[in-house]
């Protein structure tokens, strides 16, 4: 490209003769397009119709469910008869499962508060925003830290007998180890993909796995006195 400017900035003082101008194209050229904005559609009807179809499909699914299965209803509430086990709604069962292991202040207050705070602050930390691979810099050192944290966490969980939470922890630690051993030049696409993941990805995945496992255990595997039961044997 030539260094000569294709246009000059300025404006004509005679506003009556000419409207406000930002640029005068001085040569017989047009402005060069460096980046084209991508294709766009009109929200109406392009997006709305698709959203409507999606919502309708959901409604059909839920209506089918409602026709096929009745919502549970038990006997009249009776404060004198505690069902065994008394369970919270399913989305709190992970929490209730934690209460089984940890003191109430930790499981019932500290952990949920921390989770909510952590969720809120996610977009305000650059480390989350840059999305750089965890192993891009100081890979070996970071792996050591990860191993130490994973072992410490496992010991902590084992100390409180939280074996069900230990399983996803160990699995994710192993996968992280595998990721650290990979690089952006790895032969398998899977390993390249694993390698590229940032720290926030690993933490969130660990958290979601724990939440899912604890909720599933609380929902299906807990019987009288919060004892372990196999759902298929009852």
């Amino acid at each position: 490209m030539s260094d000569d400017k294709d246009f000059v900035a300025g404006f004509d003082s005679n506003a009556r003769k000419a409207p406000v101008r930002v640029a005068f194209v001085t040569r017989r050229t047009s402005p060069q397009v460096k980046v084209a904005d991508e294709d766009q559609v009109m929200t109406h009807p392009g997006v709305f119709l698709r959203v409507a179809v999606a919502v309708e499909l959901l409604t059909i699914a839920l209506v089918t469910l409602a026709l096929a299965w009745d919502a549970p209803l038990e006997g009249l509430a009776d404060p004198m008869h505690t069902p065994n086990p008394a369970k919270a709604p399913w989305y709190f069962l992970g929490l209730q499962e934690l209460l089984h292991y940890f003191p109430p202040v930790l499981a019932g207050v500290l952990i949920p508060t921390l989770v909510v705070l952590a969720l809120i602050v996610i977009p305000y930390f650059n480390i989350n925003i840059q999305a750089e691979s965890l192993w891009a810099r100081d890979g070996a050192k970071r792996l050591r830290i990860v191993v130490v944290v994973a072992v410490a966490l496992s010991v902590f969980l084992a100390f409180f007998d939280v074996w069900v939470a230990l399983v996803p922890t160990v699995i994710i630690a192993v996968v992280m180890f595998l990721a650290a051993r990979s690089s952006s030049q790895s032969a398998s696409a899977m390993r390249r993909w694993l390698y590229s993941k940032p720290l926030s990805f690993w933490i969130m995945t660990w958290f979601l796995a724990e939440a899912a496992v604890l909720t599933a255990v609380g929902t299906f595997f807990r019987g009288p006195g919060w004892s372990w039961v196999w759902p298929w044997r009852s």
Partner: peptide
């Protein structure tokens, strides 16, 4: 999308 919307409705 319009036809799909109509049929699914």
């Amino acid at each position: 999308p319009a036809r799909a919307f109509g049929s699914i409705s």
